[in-house]
């Protein structure tokens, strides 16, 4: 955690609105990006909002034992997984075919990244989470272990499973490395 963040967090713990805004400015893109990758663009704004509200409500409990980024990732991942679980209980939502972001008609994303969106969406949530945190958020294994409350060995094996299954899904969709 940078010294700047430490100052902001201390002020946030006192309910300082300016500090809350600064904390938001520092981290909202990261939170939003993670939400888009984990639950899709459609629900990402609502979830980002929920994450920050939860964060400001509970920031007084942040003790600094782990880094703030780890704590923020954990809050975000938990909100996203909870959302995914509640969504999976609604049969009318076609989870597995819903695109993560954009559509093939948008013309803005390459065909390959569209395939990755679709394949990621079909991956089991816990595998999608570990892949996204590693490949997009660039967390190390120790950061992944802390964020997901796993051992380093489990992180490695879960990443292996995520990549292997993702490769199968991408190949089924016509992707060639």
């Amino acid at each position: 955690m940078t010294e700047l963040s430490a100052d902001i967090i201390t002020a946030c713990q006192s309910g300082d609105r300016t500090a809350q805004r600064q904390l938001y400015e520092l981290h909202h893109r990261r939170v939003y990006r993670l939400c888009v990758r984990l639950v899709g663009e459609q629900d990402a704004s609502d979830l980002t909002q929920q994450v920050f509200l939860k964060l400001f409500r509970t920031i007084s409990q942040f003790s600094g034992r782990s880094s703030f980024e780890t704590w923020l990732h954990r809050v975000t991942v938990n909100e996203c997984l909870q959302h995914t679980r509640s969504r999976s209980h609604r049969p009318e939502v076609a989870l597995v075919t819903e695109p993560m972001a954009g559509t093939s008609e948008s013309g803005s994303a390459s065909e390959s990244t569209e395939l990755l969106h679709t394949a990621l969406d079909r991956l089991a949530p816990e595998l999608r989470t570990v892949f996204v945190l590693r490949e997009i958020e660039e967390l190390s294994y120790s950061e992944l272990a802390e964020t997901l409350d796993l051992s380093a060995g489990t992180v490695a094996s879960r990443l292996n499973r995520a990549r292997t299954q993702l490769k199968v899904l991408l190949t089924e969709l016509g992707w060639e490395p």
Partner: peptide, 14 residues
Amino acid sequence: AMSLLARELPEPEP
């Protein structure tokens, strides 16, 4: 190849 693909994902804009 999948790592490269992940890095090509467009940055979403809140």
